[in-house]
């Protein structure tokens, strides 16, 4: 089966400073992929680069294919068909993504006219259907409201309605619930998974919250300092993380039940992109780092079916984890 999107060797540099250093990622039709990592790890930049949304001074190289067609360097007319049409994106701060001086109807209809070639009564009916789909109560009347008249959770629902207006094959949700309260976050995540099922749409969920990603995605990729360091089916990643960074992230999460334990904090901080350590970028913070780690950046290598890890100490790291479990 050809993947819907395949990214190969995607690299991005801002003013000569590399922020994305060779990302390989493939996404099947209708699949939900989670992307986790700390701020600055390149989760968002990967997709902004893939869709040609980065500022001009960003140097992008590698390859991004959608259904086999190359997107990097594609003409603007072609990209316009893809963006919002086949691939839609929603962001963390929905309020700033909407125009405050236009009604919701205007903004929804704009998206529909652009990507669905609808007009007249059909477009209005579709706008109403979308607003109902995302669960805005009293949708008919609320269409003529302005963004500030909605709560934060509702604005994110409207953003989702606009994003799915073009019947996309892929929705990229960049920290869609980070700015929302816990009970509202649960609503939005449920809405996203319902819509994904109904429209058989693929989803990329970018989040710093491991729990959010674990529950809503089939597969998870962990990013660190501009690279993917581990990729696995979500249940396997959280039950048995192999890369020391993935282990660290999971160990750093306080448990909500069971006995309390001291959190295993990862020492140090994320490296500065301008002064990247040689070899594995995680080595200076890694408890298992050995001499060869500083020589060359480890490539992503398969360790099981469906699982890849970029760590030359993967075996040792797995033993260390099993050792802890055995105690």
């Amino acid at each position: 089966m050809t993947p819907l999107v395949s990214i190969e060797g995607l690299s991005v540099a801002f003013n000569g400073v590399p922020v994305l250093r060779g990302v390989d990622l493939a996404l099947g039709k209708g699949e939900a992929l989670g992307l986790v990592g700390e701020s600055g790890s390149g989760k968002s930049v990967t997709w902004l680069a893939a869709l040609g949304l980065l500022p001009r001074h960003a140097k992008v190289s590698g390859s991004v294919r959608l259904d086999g067609r190359e997107l990097l360097g594609a003409p603007a007319s072609e990209l316009d068909q893809v963006r919002g049409g086949r691939v839609a994106m929603i962001f963390q701060d929905p309020a700033s993504a909407l125009n405050p001086v236009l009604t919701i109807r205007k903004q929804l209809c704009e998206a529909l006219a652009l990507h669905r070639n609808l007009s007249g009564e059909a477009i209005k009916a579709e706008a109403l259907r979308l607003l109902n789909l995302v669960g805005i109560p009293d949708a008919g009347r609320r269409l003529s409201a302005y963004p500030h008249e909605f709560s934060g959770g509702q604005v994110q629902r409207i953003m989702i309605a606009m994003a799915v207006a073009g019947n996309p094959d892929l929705l990229i949700a960049d920290e869609p619930t980070t700015a929302l309260d816990a009970t509202i976050q649960a609503q939005i995540l449920e809405l996203l998974s319902t819509i994904r099922r109904e429209m058989s749409m693929a989803l990329v969920l970018i989040s710093h919250d491991l729990g959010v990603v674990a529950e809503n995605c089939d597969r998870v990729a962990v990013m660190y300092a501009g690279r993917i360091v581990e990729q696995a089916p979500s249940n396997q990643l959280f039950a048995d993380p192999v890369h020391p960074y993935a282990q660290g992230l999971i160990g750093a999460l306080p448990p909500l039940d069971g006995p309390r334990r001291r959190l295993t904090a990862i020492p140090g901080t994320v490296p500065d992109p301008a002064h990247m350590p040689s070899g594995c970028a995680f080595a200076p913070r890694c408890t298992l780092a050995a001499e060869p780690c500083a020589l060359a950046a480890p490539p992503l290598a398969p360790i099981a079916e469906d699982r890849v890890v970029a760590c030359i100490r993967a075996e040792a790291s797995r033993h260390a984890l099993l050792g802890i479990a055995a105690e």
């Binding site: 309260d181 609503q187 995540l189 449920e190 674990a214 529950e215 809503n216 959280f238 039950a239 999460l253």
Partner: peptide
């Protein structure tokens, strides 16, 4: 509160706005 290793089945999702 989402938890790794647990699917969202059986979650109480509150209706209504904050």
């Amino acid at each position: 509160s989402p938890a790794p290793g647990r699917r969202s089945a059986g979650r109480i999702v509150l209706a209504g706005d904050p």
